[in-house]
Write a protein that binds this DNA or RNA. Sequence first.
DNA 1: AACTATTTCAAACGTTTGTATCAAACGATC
DNA 2: GATCGTTTGATACAAACGTTTGAAATAGTT
Lengths: 216, 216
Amino acid sequence: MKNHRNEHTRERILDEAEALFALKGYHAVSVREITGAAQCNLAAVNYHFGNKQKLYLEVYRQRWLPRAERVHQSFQDSLKSEQAPSAGTVVQSLARAFLEGPLSDEERNRHLRLVVGELSQPTEAFDQVIERVFRPLLGSLISDLRAAMPADMDQEQAVLNAFSIMAMVLYFNLARPVIKAVLGATDGSDLQTRLIDHLVEFSLNGIAGGKWETGK
Amino acid sequence: MKNHRNEHTRERILDEAEALFALKGYHAVSVREITGAAQCNLAAVNYHFGNKQKLYLEVYRQRWLPRAERVHQSFQDSLKSEQAPSAGTVVQSLARAFLEGPLSDEERNRHLRLVVGELSQPTEAFDQVIERVFRPLLGSLISDLRAAMPADMDQEQAVLNAFSIMAMVLYFNLARPVIKAVLGATDGSDLQTRLIDHLVEFSLNGIAGGKWETGK
DNA sequence: AACTATTTCAAACGTTTGTATCAAACGATC
DNA sequence: GATCGTTTGATACAAACGTTTGAAATAGTT
């Protein structure tokens, strides 16, 4: 067996690297900044991971992917308790898995910032994110939605509905400061809860779809 | 008056800087890369803008802000033609202003990537984006929506609805590659049109709101 | 045509970057 | 407790970075 302080060092580097990458983006973070935060030597990164880019990839593999799977699992677990979940239950389960599920506020923030970074400036991790997480999650979501509303929803419509829900989940997290700034003093107690409620209601009405002559 | 080639240089730098910042992000772009693309001398950036960060700010001031105002204008123009626009018209006007309005595909891509970058990694430009563009646009959108649906929509609900629509506009642009990858070979002819249609229908149903026991 | 202000250019500056080196310290196994 | 592979630490390095400089070139004015 290896010793313990070494693995601690490796894990500390992964933790601090993830936090810094999520906060400032890959290029804005230097290796010295990471090793400084992790309180280890500069060379430790190159010893444990080879170079900066491989460290970044390892952050995705060893921190981001497992967390994404936890979220996915949480989503599926809350659905398995019901036999034939309604579309409302599906959407609500998804929103809750992301926004109040197994992740702490800090974890969720890191998690979503990392994936947004990868979406807007794709690196080698992009394919992993898509194939290992995005596609399976969208697959689950789509099949659940179609099972709940088998009537008149074809594949493309289901995909677009799923993307719309994901859009709000990501954006409501990313733009939290903006939302707070715009809502201003109205910011009561649990903004988070109201955001989830709105997201669920909005997207459920969205997918419930039909004609749209509701306007006055 | 100044001469002409100089202003050309200044403008070329702004153009190339914007394209590169949007494509790769602030820190991933070097001054040499910009001056190389603009085919001018390295020192030109510091002569015309002082330093790299001020160039970035100037890109927002002289390129991004005017374009954002063009989009806002386009949104308002298409509404003024009608006397009492329905919520459907409001949403459709907004979606079209962003997705097929005055901007070319390339311009829109740059525009939205820049704002997403600013949302996820705020810099000094952030406040400008919020106060000069986001807040006015949200203001227009909210008052239009409330005028169209005066019944039971309070301020916060209108704000959240507006954010939800913006979420989809931004995300559908950012995640275009992912959408294409997931939709796969089904990708027919005009994905763009279908995306707008879906966005309008989804968000209109979303704000039309009410109860949500539609699920099976 | 001469002069002045503005803009471009090549070259260099001092830092910071990612990465490599190699001896010292450490843990595990015999 | 000697030995071996593994991990750490201080230091070094070349490359790239943003920025500065001062002279050459250009445009505008008289």
